[in-house]
Amino acid sequence: MMKIDLKTGIIEINGEIIMPGYTFEDFRNTKFYKGQDGIRIIRINDTAQIGENKFIASFFFRNKVLYMISIICVDVEIPFSEEIKRKNIHDNILKNNGLAPESFFDWGNIKSVYDPKGNVCSINIIYNAGM
């Protein structure tokens, strides 16, 4: 289960609480920690559910502070050559939750993106620097 409080930016992923200012040391004290170094992208092994959709989540740290959580809906298999279609799925998920493809908050923003270099679509939850 994954829940986000849009007012505070506090996220719960499968019972673990993540918030603005969350550090790599905080991450080390969770069930998600499996010896990762906090420098590379950390993909969580568990899937998280939001409503009827299942996601994989990845954590990005900068200077040992959480910068971004990237989630990818894995409800449908999409061929590599058609990955851009996943962005439409993500846009609709955001819309169904009352959000635009990019929404701004005091703590950061949430946006649906397509990265043509990596050929990957994701919903990125980005925390403001210095939070």
Rank of each mutant, 00 (worst) to 15 (best):
V65M: 10
K111G: 10
V113I: 14
I41W: 11
S81V: 13
I69G: 03
E25A: 09
G130H: 12
K34L: 12
R62G: 02
M131E: 07
N97F: 09
L6H: 10
K3N: 13
E102Q: 15
K7C: 03
G130Y: 12
Y67P: 03
E12R: 10
D46E: 15
I41Y: 10
I4Y: 06
L6I: 11
P101R: 09
K31C: 04
M1C: 07
K111C: 08
I126S: 07
L6E: 04
I93D: 00
I13D: 02
N92K: 15
G38S: 07
K31H: 10
Q36W: 07
C73F: 08
E102S: 14
N14P: 04
D75T: 08
N92M: 11
P101E: 04
I93M: 03
I17N: 02
K54Q: 10
N45M: 09
D91Y: 08
R43Y: 08
S58Q: 13
W107I: 05
E12I: 12
G98T: 09
V76D: 11
F24Y: 13
Y127C: 01
Y33Q: 03
D75I: 06
Y22R: 04
S81H: 14
K87S: 02
E52W: 12
T30P: 00
I84C: 00
K95H: 11
G9A: 06
I13E: 02
D26F: 05
S58V: 02
I4H: 06
T23Q: 04
V113C: 04
D46Q: 15
V76S: 10
H90I: 01
N124S: 11
I125D: 02
E82V: 03
A129T: 12
V74E: 05
Y33G: 01
K95Q: 08
R86C: 00
L6Y: 15
R40K: 15
I11W: 03
I44T: 04
G35P: 04
K87E: 07
Y22D: 00
S81F: 14
D115R: 07
